[in-house]
């Protein structure tokens, strides 16, 4: 099985988000970057599915600062990596880069997270599927391969559906598809020498531009209600907050 796993390089889930340059740039100072948590689920499952004769390639669209994140994916167990040397400016741009590489490489399975936790768009897997003319599915919480067929559980509102699709396909993954794998010392050592190929991006027409960021308005103080008379809460919700 030849598997491509697309990973994003995103601020840790506990990061405080702020912006610089008049709210036009993300403020990376003091922020720890990680493999997108959903992408890491996809990577973990890919390694389990790889088999003896298979391979797992990780792909990231990002500038040079994402290389430590890519090396971590190699330490977890991917065989090799590709970095498309460009800032991932929107879903269409990223999907176009992935599709350009996948077109010549003929992967059986293209996995990624259901969404990146920075832009939260959840669009890349579907776009890649459409660009390659193959099925796409998300969010996938269980994925098994038998022969040429994938059986998956996809989360839907209030439950799940069991879906069968012939390979190749693109899937956006989420927990509990696999347990995260902690890299061991051998993995970390070998990651340093595993191949990481840097390629230049293909030209893509610009369809969106991010003009500025905003932070939510700060919350007012929490109004405390005495625990001995909790029913007063409903009066406040009805008359003051007007949400009942």
């Amino acid at each position: 099985m030849k598997i491509l796993v697309c990973i994003s390089h995103v601020p840790d889930t506990a990061s405080k988000i702020s912006f610089t340059d008049n709210n036009t740039k993300f403020n990376a100072a003091g922020v720890q970057f990680i493999i997108g948590p959903y992408d890491e689920y996809a990577l973990s499952r890919a390694i389990e599915l790889r088999g003896d004769a298979g391979s797992v390639t990780v792909l990231n669209v990002g500038e040079a600062d994402t290389e430590p994140t890519i090396r971590k994916a190699l330490a977890i167990g991917a065989d090799d990596a590709i970095r498309v040397n460009a800032f991932p400016k929107d879903s269409y741009f990223v999907a176009s880069q992935i599709a350009a590489i996948a077109k010549s490489e003929k992967y059986d399975l293209i996995l990624m997270g259901r969404e990146s936790i920075d832009y939260n768009s959840g669009l890349v897997h579907g776009m890649v599927g459409e660009m390659l003319g193959i099925p796409s599915i998300s969010p996938v919480m269980k994925l098994d391969i038998t022969g040429n067929k994938a059986t998956m559980a996809r989360e839907i509102e209030g439950g799940k559906e069991i879906v069968e699709i012939a390979l190749p396909l693109v899937a956006g993954c989420q927990e509990p598809i696999a347990e995260w794998k902690i890299p061991n010392m051998k993995g970390i050592m070998s990651a340093r020498t595993k191949p990481l190929k840097v390629v230049e991006p293909t030209a893509v027409e610009e369809t969106t531009s991010l003009n500025s960021y905003e932070l939510p308005a700060p919350k007012g103080a929490c109004k405390m209600i005495d625990a001995s008379t909790p029913e007063k809460l409903f009066e406040a919700l009805k008359n003051e907050a007007k949400v009942l």
Binding site: G126, E130, T208
Partner: peptide, 23 residues
């Protein structure tokens, strides 16, 4: 933004050569 809306929007945008923003 739903399990089907989001999944469809991405493919639709590529088909129509449209700009797409979710959420």
């Amino acid at each position: 933004k739903s399990s089907i809306g989001e999944a469809v929007a991405s493919r639709l945008a590529v088909k129509l050569k449209a700009a797409v923003v979710s959420n």
